[in-house]
C-alpha cells in the first residue's frame, strides 16, 4: 500500500449489466479507487449504485467490462478471495445479522474463511473492539438498538479483514448521536472505504473524494466539496443539500488519522 503507481484496490472498466428481466442498470461504469482512499458514491434513487456495489464482490458478475479488486479479476473462480477482500455492509442490519448471538454472527465470515479456535475468537474480539461493541458479544442481535446493530454489522465484515469496506447507506435511520459515533468509527479504520449514501453532509465529513452516479454511469468524479458546491451538476443529478447546509462553510475532510 505505498506510492501512486501500485494497482488500484478497486478498478472497474466499461462495466455494463442488465438484470435477467431485461432491465439494464449499468451502462459502462469506469472507476478507480486507490488503497487507503475514502470515497463517497452519490446519486439519486435508481441510479444503479446498489447494482454497482453488488458487482464489487461478485454477487453480480459483469455482463460486459471488468471489475478488478487489487488486480484480481472478479469472476467465478476468484469469488472466495474477492469476498474476503471486499466487505459489504448492507443497509438493513437485520439482513446482515442472522445468528442467535452477536459473537456467532461476527464469527460467521471468518469461519467461512476456515478459521477456528483461538484465531477465530481473536478475530471476533478485534472486530467488535473496533466498533466498541465487545460488551454485547453474547446478546442476541434483535435485542440491540438499531445503532448498535449497525455497528455490529460493520464488525461482521471487519472480522474478515477486508481491504475495502463498502457501506450501503450507513447513516440511514440512525439518530444524530449514533450517526456521529459511526463516523468516528469509520474515520478510525485503515481500510479503503466506499460509502454509498444520500447523506451529503456525511459524505463531505468522511470522504475527500466523491463519485456521482446517474442512469447507470459515473457522471462526475472529484473532491467532495467541489461536487457539492457545483449547483448545476447537483441539480442535473437530483442531488440536494439539506436546508441551510453550505458545504463551503465547513472544513474539508481531513487526511487519514
Amino acid at each position: 500500500m505505498d506510492g501512486a503507481h501500485v494497482t488500484p484496490v478497486l478498478a472497474v472498466e466499461g462495466l455494463a449489466y442488465a438484470y435477467p428481466d431485461g432491465h439494464q442498470a449499468l451502462f459502462g461504469v469506469d472507476m478507480r479507487i486507490e488503497a487507503g482512499e475514502r470515497v463517497a458514491l452519490l446519486g439519486p434513487n435508481g441510479a444503479g449504485k446498489t447494482t454497482l456495489v453488488l458487482h464489487l464482490n461478485g454477487i453480480h458478475l459483469a455482463g460486459r467490462g471488468s471489475v478488478r479488486v487489487a488486480g484480481t479479476m472478479v469472476e467465478k473462480s476468484s469469488l472466495a478471495e474477492i469476498r474476503r477482500r471486499v466487505g459489504l455492509v448492507f443497509q438493513d442490519p437485520d439482513d446482515q445479522l442472522f445468528m442467535p448471538t452477536v459473537r456467532d454472527d461476527v464469527a460467521f465470515g471468518p469461519a467461512n474463511l476456515g478459521l477456528r479456535g483461538d484465531e477465530l475468537d481473536h478475530r471476533v474480539h478485534d472486530a467488535l473492539a473496533a466498533v466498541g461493541m465487545t460488551d454485547v458479544a453474547d446478546r442476541a442481535p434483535h435485542h440491540l438498538s438499531f445503532g448498535q446493530r449497525r455497528r455490529v454489522a460493520v464488525a461482521t465484515v471487519l472480522a474478515m479483514r477486508p481491504d475495502v469496506l463498502v457501506l450501503d447507506e450507513p447513516s440511514s435511520n440512525l439518530d444524530p448521536a449514533s450517526r456521529r459515533e459511526l463516523a468516528e468509527i469509520l474515520v478510525g479504520l485503515e481500510q479503503t472505504i466506499l460509502l454509498v449514501t444520500h447523506d451529503l453532509p456525511y459524505a463531505l465529513e468522511l470522504c475527500p473524494r466523491s463519485l456521482v452516479m446517474n442512469e447507470g454511469t459515473i457522471v462526475a468524479d472529484g473532491p467532495t466539496a467541489d461536487i457539492l458546491g457545483d449547483a448545476a451538476l447537483m441539480a442535473a443529478n437530483r442531488l440536494e443539500l439539506p436546508y441551510g447546509f453550505d458545504p463551503a462553510s465547513v472544513p474539508p475532510p481531513g487526511p487519514r488519522s
Binding site: 454477487i59 448492507f90 439482513d95 456467532d104
Partner: peptide, 24 residues
C-alpha cells in the same frame, strides 16, 4: 425478499452453501 437479502449478505461473507461448524 428478506430471505433473499439475507442470503446475499451471507454470500458476501463467504458463505458457500454449508454453515461453518464453529463449535469446537
Amino acid at each position: 425478499e428478506r430471505g433473499e437479502r439475507v442470503h446475499l449478505a451471507m454470500l458476501s461473507r463467504g458463505f458457500d452453501g454449508a454453515m461453518p461448524r464453529m463449535v469446537e
